[in-house]
């Protein structure tokens, strides 16, 4: 299986994308499978590091949690923008991260940037410290704890 299809996740997403773009029919199924197969074999020549999702259940729970958080964060940001009365305190926050896996860090970056309340600024790979900007720093520790407890722990379970 691994020799025949080196990157199953990539192949599956390419196949799905092909079907979404071109519609489902017998011909498109075949063509999409051929494209997915060829692209994954081409990818093998580049030999990227292969992310391994160890716990699908944790990933699903994390995804649902992030979905709800993004909606909540949108309304918080809207409140700050519309009713801002100088009470919101934007701040740069340093968060030391224990997460090391590059895919996990990329997913964390996506999560933090997609939320209007937080923005990923920089990650220092040597000191393993994340610099992020928050729109409303209620307490210095609040955002650090949120990132570590809510996102970093499940990501470490999934990828490490």
């Amino acid at each position: 299986m691994t020799r025949l299809l080196p990157y199953p996740l990539l192949a599956l997403s390419l196949f799905l994308m092909w079907l979404l773009l071109n519609g489902v029919s017998a011909g498109q199924l075949l063509l999409g499978a051929a494209v997915a197969f060829g692209a994954t074999w081409a990818m093998r020549a580049l030999d990227p590091s292969k992310p391994r999702i160890r716990r699908w259940r944790v990933a699903a729970i994390l995804f649902a949690g992030v979905f709800v958080d993004i909606i909540k964060s949108n309304f918080d940001a809207a409140r700050i923008i519309l009713l801002r009365s100088g009470r919101a305190r934007p701040a740069l926050v340093h968060v030391p991260l224990a997460l090391r896996d590059p895919t996990g860090l990329a997913v964390l970056a996506c999560i933090l940037t997609c939320m209007p309340g937080t923005a990923w600024i920089e990650y220092n790979a040597t000191s393993r410290e994340l610099l992020m900007h928050v729109l409303d720093a209620e307490a210095e520790e609040y955002w650090g704890d949120l990132v570590k407890q809510r996102y970093e722990r499940p990501l470490r379970e999934i990828f490490e």
Binding site: I70, N74, A77, I80, I81, R84, M115, H133, L135
Partner: peptide, 29 residues
């Protein structure tokens, strides 16, 4: 509406680091 509020934020927020939060409202919700 959410996209519009994000762009209002692009105008109202004071520093660049605050403004970088505003367009993500349009791209997420």
């Amino acid at each position: 509406t959410v996209t519009l509020i994000g762009c209002i934020g692009l105008i109202r927020l004071r520093t660049f680091y605050e403004r970088i939060h505003a367009p993500t409202m349009g791209t997420s919700l």
